Computed example of a mutant assay.
Amino acid sequence: MTKKLKIDFVSDVSCPWCAIGLKSLDEALARVGGEVEAELHFQPFELNPKMPTEGQEINEHLSQKYGSTPAQLEQTREMIRQRGAEVGFTFGIGKRSRIYNTFDAHRLLHWAELQGHGLQKALKEALFKAYFTDGESPGSHEVLARVAGEVGLDEARAREILASHAYADEVREREQFYLQNGIHSVPAVIINERHLISGGQPAEVFEQALRQIAAGG
C-alpha cells in the first residue's frame, strides 16, 4: 500500500546545497516509488534578505560573511561542483560572479504553486539551472519572467506579478513561520510537518528516512 507523505522543501534559489539536496531527494523518491507518494511543496527562505537588488560580488560577499580566504572559497566551490556532478546537476565553472536578492523569485514560486500541475517544482529547477549552470540573475524580472514562460507558466502574468507586490505578504509570512520554528539554514526538508532532515544529504539518507516514516517508524 502506498503511503502519502507531505514534504516541505525549505530553500533558497541561490543556495547550491539546495540544488544538490533536491536532486538527491528526487533520487530517493524514485527509489521508494512504489511505497511512497510524495506531495512536494517548496517553501521560501532567504539566505541574504537584506541583499540589494543589484547584488554583490560573490567572493567579496562570502569573504565578509564567512571570513573565507580565496583558496578556501575555491576549494569549497570545487567540492560543490563535484557533489553536483554526482547527482546530475551542473555548476557552471566561472558562471556565477554575484549573489542576488531572491525575494521576487520566491513570490513567483508561491504563485507557481497555486497553478498546480507540478509547475512550482519545474520553476524551482529551472531557476537553479538559470543561476548555477548559466550564471543568470534570479533577481532579474526579465530572467524570472522568461524562465516562468519556459516551464509552462503564463509569462505575461508573471511579469504583472513581478511588477506588483503580489504574494509579498504570503512569502514573508511563510519565511517567518520557518524561522520561528528553528529553521536557520537550508535546505531543510520537513516530512509530514514533523520530521526534519537538514542539509544537502545523499540520496541514501533521504531514502532511509522516507522508508522509516512511511513504515510509521
Rank of each mutant, 00 (worst) to 15 (best):
residue 1 M to C: 14
residue 1 M to A: 08
residue 1 M to E: 07
residue 2 T to F: 11
residue 4 K to Y: 12
residue 5 L to D: 05
residue 8 D to C: 04
residue 10 V to G: 00
residue 10 V to S: 08
residue 11 S to K: 02
residue 11 S to M: 00
residue 12 D to I: 01
residue 16 P to L: 10
residue 16 P to T: 15
residue 17 W to E: 12
residue 17 W to Q: 04
residue 18 C to M: 09
residue 26 D to H: 14
residue 28 A to W: 15
residue 30 A to R: 15
residue 30 A to P: 02
residue 32 V to W: 02
residue 34 G to V: 02
residue 35 E to Y: 02
residue 36 V to M: 14
residue 41 H to Q: 14
residue 43 Q to N: 05
residue 45 F to Y: 11
residue 46 E to D: 14
residue 48 N to S: 13
residue 49 P to V: 12
residue 51 M to N: 13
residue 51 M to H: 15
residue 54 E to Y: 02
residue 55 G to S: 12
residue 58 I to F: 01
residue 59 N to V: 13
residue 61 H to W: 01
residue 61 H to M: 00
residue 62 L to H: 14
residue 63 S to T: 14
residue 64 Q to W: 00
residue 64 Q to V: 04
residue 67 G to V: 03
residue 67 G to K: 04
residue 71 A to M: 00
residue 73 L to Y: 09
residue 73 L to T: 04
residue 75 Q to I: 02
residue 78 E to T: 08
residue 80 I to M: 09
residue 81 R to S: 06
residue 85 A to M: 08
residue 85 A to R: 15
residue 86 E to R: 10
residue 87 V to N: 05
residue 87 V to A: 02
residue 87 V to T: 05
residue 89 F to C: 07
residue 89 F to K: 05
residue 91 F to G: 06
residue 93 I to H: 07
residue 95 K to S: 00
residue 96 R to C: 14
residue 97 S to F: 11
residue 98 R to L: 01
residue 99 I to C: 05
residue 101 N to H: 13
residue 107 R to P: 07
residue 111 W to K: 10
residue 111 W to Y: 09
residue 111 W to S: 04
residue 112 A to C: 03
residue 114 L to R: 14
residue 114 L to C: 12
residue 118 G to Y: 08
residue 120 Q to V: 01
residue 120 Q to W: 02
residue 121 K to E: 13
residue 124 K to Y: 15
residue 125 E to F: 08
residue 127 L to I: 11
residue 128 F to T: 03
residue 129 K to F: 06
residue 132 F to Y: 14
residue 133 T to V: 00
residue 135 G to H: 02
residue 135 G to Q: 08
residue 138 P to H: 12
residue 145 A to Y: 07
residue 147 V to N: 04
residue 151 V to P: 09
residue 151 V to M: 08
residue 151 V to E: 15
residue 152 G to W: 01
residue 154 D to K: 02
residue 160 E to A: 07
residue 161 I to A: 13
residue 161 I to T: 09
residue 162 L to K: 07
residue 163 A to C: 08
residue 165 H to G: 13
residue 165 H to I: 05
residue 166 A to T: 12
residue 168 A to W: 13
residue 178 Y to M: 01
residue 178 Y to A: 07
residue 181 N to E: 09
residue 184 H to M: 05
residue 184 H to F: 10
residue 188 A to K: 05
residue 189 V to D: 03
residue 189 V to I: 12
residue 190 I to A: 09
residue 191 I to L: 11
residue 191 I to N: 02
residue 195 H to I: 09
residue 196 L to F: 01
residue 196 L to M: 09
residue 200 G to K: 13
residue 205 V to A: 15
residue 207 E to A: 10
residue 209 A to E: 12
residue 209 A to Y: 10
residue 216 G to Y: 05
residue 216 G to S: 00
residue 217 G to Y: 08
